[in-house]
């Protein structure tokens, strides 16, 4: 229906997540109307990202060098490791500005039905970091869903005998939510993890 070159762009855009055929068409036509230098900047940025970005050799976070900016930063506390599922989770924890240690990205969570077990995650790499980096505490920050929790429990079982302190981020009610809509599991966790107000 369209010129071949346009159709090709529509097809390629349509392969991106969340982009259906209509959105792809709209984006392609937007690109046709845009200033050519803007389009060049966009394509150059995409090509550059793909060629420069790789995984940090230590924590598997995305990085432009052998070590990511967090691993390379000597001011970060090396004795505390925060274990997360995906590089996006590193960004989420960093946004809190509460954590000054380093990270380890697993690359997913245990999901037997999808064929993902401990061997498909970067668990061996995590174990290999403990001694050389003198890690004293591992904070498990996997997603609070069933796969994330299975992963956390599996790691706790593996790490505790090695003399490392293993902690897990708290789970409970989201700030600004309503108690009546909380499910039993979340509310149960929130009760279990309650803490004294004032004092301490």
């Amino acid at each position: 229906m369209y010129a071949d070159a346009v159709q090709q762009v529509i097809d390629e855009l349509g392969r991106l997540p969340g982009i259906g055929p209509r959105s792809a068409q709209r984006l392609a036509f937007h690109l046709l109307e845009t200033d050519p230098t803007d389009v060049e900047r966009l394509t150059a940025a995409i090509v550059e990202m793909r060629s420069r970005v790789r995984f940090c050799t230590r924590c598997s976070n995305i990085s432009e060098d052998d070590l990511c900016t967090i691993c390379a930063d000597t001011r970060r506390e090396g004795s505390v490791l925060c274990v997360v599922e995906e590089p996006r989770d590193v960004v989420a924890v960093e946004r809190t500005a509460e954590f000054r240690g380093r990270y380890h990205v697993l690359g997913g969570s245990i999901s037997p039905i999808d064929g993902v077990g401990p061997d498909q995650l970067r668990i061996r790499e995590l174990l290999a970091r403990l001694e050389p980096e003198a890690v004293a505490e591992v904070i498990l920050a996997t997603n609070p869903n069933i796969e994330g929790e299975a992963t956390a429990m599996y790691l706790a079982r593996l790490l505790e005998p090695l003399g490392v302190e293993v902690t897990k981020i708290a789970s409970g009610l989201p700030v600004g939510g309503d108690l009546e809509y909380a499910d039993e599991l979340t509310l149960g966790r929130a009760l279990e993890g309650r803490r004294r107000l004032g004092g301490d």
């Binding site: 037997p112 039905i113 429990m153």
Partner: peptide, 27 residues
């Protein structure tokens, strides 16, 4: 609404894998 939450299936990775096997076959 929850009818059963199966708390131990969440806290034990081996039992979660066993439950997954049953779910996989039924699926």
């Amino acid at each position: 609404e929850s009818l059963d939450t199966f708390a131990t299936l969440r806290s034990d990775p081996d039992r979660f894998a066993e439950a997954s096997a049953m779910l996989e076959v039924v699926e």
